[in-house]
Design a protein around this nucleic acid. Sequence first.
DNA 1: TAGATTGTTAATCGATTAACAATC
DNA 2: TAGATTGTTAATCGATTAACAATC
Lengths: 209, 209
Amino acid sequence: MGASKRVSEAVIKRLPRYYRHLSILEGQGIERISSEKLALQMRLNASQVRQDFNCFGGFGQQGYGYNISSLLAEIRAILAIDRPHSLVIAGAGNIGRALTCFAGFEEMGFRIEALFDVDPAAVGTEVNGKPVLDMAEMEEYIRAHNIEIGVVAARRKAVQGIADGMVRAGVRGIWNFVPVDLVADVPTENVHLSDSICALSYKIAHEED
Amino acid sequence: MGASKRVSEAVIKRLPRYYRHLSILEGQGIERISSEKLALQMRLNASQVRQDFNCFGGFGQQGYGYNISSLLAEIRAILAIDRPHSLVIAGAGNIGRALTCFAGFEEMGFRIEALFDVDPAAVGTEVNGKPVLDMAEMEEYIRAHNIEIGVVAARRKAVQGIADGMVRAGVRGIWNFVPVDLVADVPTENVHLSDSICALSYKIAHEED
DNA sequence: TAGATTGTTAATCGATTAACAATC
DNA sequence: TAGATTGTTAATCGATTAACAATC
């Protein structure tokens, strides 16, 4: 039974992938899997799989492998997706609206409560049943509704100020979609689409490795 | 003058960030910067900055630092964003449409030529002036227009087949937005939103490090 | 029990950081 | 020239992989 060690960024990034893959296996009615088979399927190394799971505790059984449903339950708990999370989105533009319409998050327990925008034409409308409110009301709303996660999808210039306001109002984390290096006192995940497409462009241009 | 060494994934991921940051400095009329100042501003290490740039060649000058506009030109060439790239999007749902409407890519030279969908109600419409065509025509279109990058934003089940078709038709890279572990023979960049929000959830739940 | 497979320690590999001679 | 700062080699740190004893 391994103890909980410090968990590297690399492991954190792999956990959702394990979760996805194991969910598929569970859906196929498979009950257990060995680190070796899992590694093969996910194009990882069996030692790495065992090390990863052992960051959190001994989930496996010698001679048997890992029970898929209990492993899934463990990962769900580790990722904290065994409970709901409330979000607000700052910026009701294309990205904000697309996120709001994407059913997948709701299913995983990430509940978008409201959007905020500065554009008077947008304020007062709804996106997929969620209200678009005035950006000026955001902090009050976050406080009143005890919102956990702030999603940043606004104009570049406004972004740092919005993030500051979210943190002030008590969000526990920020999900940033704007190509800006945010500075915040809470955990932040960046989805930098333009960085991603540039990286792809690089890989295409330098394809020989 | 450093030679071109093998470039790690970590460096590739940092290049677009350098590019963004240096662009801002250039916009402020700043002409040169030392690795130490740049590292400070970007919360990196000065040695790392120099190592990173030296993967590609000696861009700096002892006693002076780096000239920002020539450094930008170098990075533009390295990332291959000094020339245009053509894209098609498979899937005219929320994500596909949002990407099509996002002006930023067009400005960087990533030209979305068409979208493809299986839904007869979508086929024949336009998104931001770009045609939505029948998915059945995709491969032919890619061949005829010599499309470089295939964007995958379709239903989970269809995704691997679509990617295979894209590669068959000659795309040089795939930009995947669907939470699926694609297998492809060309460079692939994944934007896994659900993995990202799960990672954020983890960090919030385990905030003590 | 014998076989399988984990948990865990040790070895390797690679990336980050430090140091400093080269040089503008 | 003296000062600044790079390019580059060496040292450190951390992550991945290998090995194997523990154990189901």
